[in-house]
Amino acid sequence: MKVIFLQDVKGKGKKGEIKNVPDGYARNFLFKKGLAVEATPANLKELE
């Protein structure tokens, strides 16, 4: 799953980066803790 990092995550990505991460990791950790959002067209547009 492609995500946009909202904060630096040690060993995974830095704020503003767009990266592919495993689905479970994204849903169960990154999204729940507010560290990233899914890289949807709407979210990508907001990032610009």
Rank of each mutant, 00 (worst) to 15 (best):
Q7A: 14
K45R: 14
V37D: 02
K10T: 10
V9D: 01
E48N: 12
G13K: 01
A26K: 02
G34H: 11
L35T: 02
D23H: 13
Y25Q: 04
I18F: 04
E46Q: 14
G11K: 05
E38N: 05
M1G: 03
Y25G: 03
G13R: 01
K12E: 11
G24V: 12
E17H: 05
L30F: 02
A26E: 07
K2N: 11
P41I: 13
K12F: 15
M1K: 07
E46P: 07
L35A: 03
L35E: 01
G11H: 08
D23I: 15
L6T: 08
G34Q: 09
K32I: 13
K2E: 09
V9P: 00
A39T: 02
R27N: 07
N28I: 08
D8L: 05
V9I: 09
V9T: 03
A39I: 05
T40D: 06
K32Y: 08
T40V: 06
K2I: 14
N20H: 14
G11V: 01
A42Q: 12
G34M: 10
K2F: 15
G16P: 00
G16Y: 09
A36N: 00
L47I: 12
A26D: 04
K2R: 15
L47K: 07
A42E: 14
V3K: 01
K19V: 11
K33L: 15
L47F: 14
D8W: 09
P41V: 13
K19L: 14
D8V: 04
G24D: 15
G16M: 05
T40G: 05
K45M: 13
N28Y: 14
K45D: 09
T40Q: 04
V37L: 11
G24Y: 14
N28R: 12
L6I: 10
V9A: 02
I18D: 00
T40E: 05
P22M: 08
I18Y: 04
R27K: 12
P22H: 09
K45N: 10
L47P: 06
K12Y: 15
K15N: 03
T40N: 10
K32H: 08
G13W: 13
P41W: 13
P41Y: 12
A26Y: 09
V21Q: 04
N43Y: 09
N43V: 12
D8H: 09
Q7S: 09
K12V: 15
A36Y: 00
K10P: 15
E48D: 12
E17V: 04
N20I: 15
R27M: 10
G13S: 04
I4F: 08
P22W: 08
K14R: 13
V37T: 07
N20T: 15
I18M: 06
K33E: 11
V21T: 02
T40H: 06
V21A: 03
N43D: 06
F5L: 07
A42Y: 09
Q7W: 10
V3M: 02
G16S: 05
E46I: 14
K10N: 10
A39M: 07
L44K: 05
A39F: 12
G16F: 10
Q7R: 14
M1S: 04
K14F: 13
N28P: 00
A42T: 11
G34D: 06
V3D: 00
K14H: 10
E38L: 12
F29D: 06
K10I: 11
G16E: 02
A42D: 13
P41N: 09
A39L: 08
R27E: 07
E17P: 00
D23G: 13
N28T: 08
A39V: 08
D23L: 15
L47N: 08
A39E: 02
I18A: 04
D8R: 05
K12G: 13
L6W: 02
Q7L: 11
K19N: 04
V37Y: 06
L6G: 02
K45F: 11
V3A: 01
L30P: 01
F5P: 00
K32S: 09
T40K: 05
L47W: 14
N43R: 10
